[in-house]
Write a protein that binds this DNA or RNA. Sequence first.
DNA 1: CATGAATGAGCCTTCATTCAT
DNA 2: AATGAATGAAGGCTCATTCAT
Lengths: 205, 205, 205, 205
Amino acid sequence: MTAHGPQASEQNKRPNTGAAKRRILDAAARLFRQRGFARCTVRELADAVGIQSGSLFHHFKSKDDILFAVMEEVIVDIDAALAERLDEATTAEAKIRALIHTQLVFTHGPRANATAVLVHEWAALSTEGQAALLERRRRYFDRWHAVFLLARQDGLVNLDPTVLQQLLHGAVVWTAYWYDPDGPMTLDELESAALSLVLKSAPVS
Amino acid sequence: MTAHGPQASEQNKRPNTGAAKRRILDAAARLFRQRGFARCTVRELADAVGIQSGSLFHHFKSKDDILFAVMEEVIVDIDAALAERLDEATTAEAKIRALIHTQLVFTHGPRANATAVLVHEWAALSTEGQAALLERRRRYFDRWHAVFLLARQDGLVNLDPTVLQQLLHGAVVWTAYWYDPDGPMTLDELESAALSLVLKSAPVS
Amino acid sequence: MTAHGPQASEQNKRPNTGAAKRRILDAAARLFRQRGFARCTVRELADAVGIQSGSLFHHFKSKDDILFAVMEEVIVDIDAALAERLDEATTAEAKIRALIHTQLVFTHGPRANATAVLVHEWAALSTEGQAALLERRRRYFDRWHAVFLLARQDGLVNLDPTVLQQLLHGAVVWTAYWYDPDGPMTLDELESAALSLVLKSAPVS
Amino acid sequence: MTAHGPQASEQNKRPNTGAAKRRILDAAARLFRQRGFARCTVRELADAVGIQSGSLFHHFKSKDDILFAVMEEVIVDIDAALAERLDEATTAEAKIRALIHTQLVFTHGPRANATAVLVHEWAALSTEGQAALLERRRRYFDRWHAVFLLARQDGLVNLDPTVLQQLLHGAVVWTAYWYDPDGPMTLDELESAALSLVLKSAPVS
DNA sequence: CATGAATGAGCCTTCATTCAT
DNA sequence: AATGAATGAAGGCTCATTCAT
């Protein structure tokens, strides 16, 4: 939560310059998720931010550019968060838990909107936009893959690592559609349930 | 004209009209999946069918109506296919396998396009459209739930049935994004892998 | 005046299909001349034609395309008109008169609007549009050049043919800004005056 | 900062302000000519000057006002230049040469941009702007007319003075489109060529 | 005087939908 | 049923202009 972009370390000649961008990105993530990128108009977005539609284009080149910025920010952040979490984990099991944890936190925590947009609106991104983000995506999934290779070596799992990784990732991402963070089940419990799926024998809670 | 899909055995509402509707629905499923409902224009759809855009509206009230028809058809069919398959399964494990199998066949088989549209474009559906399909959706997931309740009774699984059902469903649905039916792994192998996820101890093939 | 486009010899399944294009081109020539291409909005143009602004785009791809069509039509027509007139002229003097006559007729006759647009709005044309018309322009001016080469050979003029041609062309084109076809001077008199400019000794009426 | 144009000898209305205005006017003349007034944005103009777009409006009331200023300056200057030149000419022929010379120098010399804007963008000027400049324009053309009346009296030319004046003016103005000051022909030679057009018998250089 | 974020009217264009043929 | 020209309501975006700093 400390660094969401390179603007933080700027000289504060214009204290609210970055603030507008921030508010636009937050509103965009929320609206693009709720209504879908194509069905959300720039006027709606501007209204949500509290500015005029034309003013959006002082901060972003185009509506497409806003989508790209939302996605890029969250893809960078989730990768960084995962890297940090993985560093702190020592065992293979702890690392798998880190994978699940990070994805769940982004899926249901304060970055839930942007994360959902990243998952859902990939096709809405321009070809160039997709190309620009693919490297980051690859890096994130490489971390998943490395963990599952390790887990296989340790005999922790007994399925093809690639397949298992994909199945788990799908199961976790899909929680966006049914899990209610305000419901009776805590995120930690959900994390443990997901973890138990992939472990050979699953004596979890 | 012989094979436009597995729907050939439909009731013959009208002798001639059906063919055009069929071709529109198939093309719509394909295009809505490829390009997204909102980004796909009725002209594109008409071109794909080989008619003029105005002619679409002799068969469907609106573009929204076409989306609804695509979704309704696949939701009815997948539920029927699941019901049939479950009837044939006797053990709890066989029934779980039936759940996975049916979802996988629709996700990667000849109905893959419509199935993907159903999953992806739910938010594009009008409120009334969503309401009209919710009952069918509920029925489909009730079948999943009943199976997992049974499996839990049988001691086949050891997680909360609701959570486990949702995790498995997510894992299977998500295969749409990474599994390649033309790749080295067969659908049956994928089915077994998914099954092994949810069984207490996993005696995989 | 016989053939303004290739639409004339079409089968008459849609008798008014070409008519709309015709009306748009005529109105566009008039408005682009009066108000300038950039200052003329598509709504103004549509109003002048008596249709909705969106309907313009059934006949032309873009506003730029309308400008191109106006220019292309007149550039083709003036070149054809000049070619025909030159064919009928036998002497060098008669040919120079044909040059002046054709340019004057297009500048002040029924094609005055399109001709003025061609002259004035060249810079408003896209780079591709300019490239597409340059060949036609070259052909037209080649005819001018050939005539002046001949006149020089005949001793009819005594200035560098290239310079003389350009000066005369400018003098004639510029009549658009001051000559009034409804004023006391006839087009024929203007033609004779322009001709007398370039002839060595000028005893013309 | 020494030479922004031949306007250095202006009355010093304000010591410091003038420089910015000068740079704006010069850049505006260049850009309005190159890109056309309507297609040139105030941001482009500001960039060319090296200031922010908002700062333009400290020096000029509006974009229209900048166009007006460019035109007014050049119309005043060309009229003054012509008046001076005519004063120095004694014969009718010398005076006609002064007309041509002055117009050519403004069309191809350091004031070429502003002169081209004056010619091209007249229609872009507001009605009030046009009205404000018409008196100056009239004065300039009155000088042309007086010269041709004199030339006719002297028997130097044998066409209607009004028509001849307009034809010559067009021929000279139009050189903007084809004459290249850096090409093989000098401005003096062009001047002589233009002069020979209007003289009864043409004793060209 | 300069800045540059913000304005807001207006631009060109798209597109689902209608309807006379 | 099919056509395709026409509709008209938005849509994304531009840009001259303003104004607090």
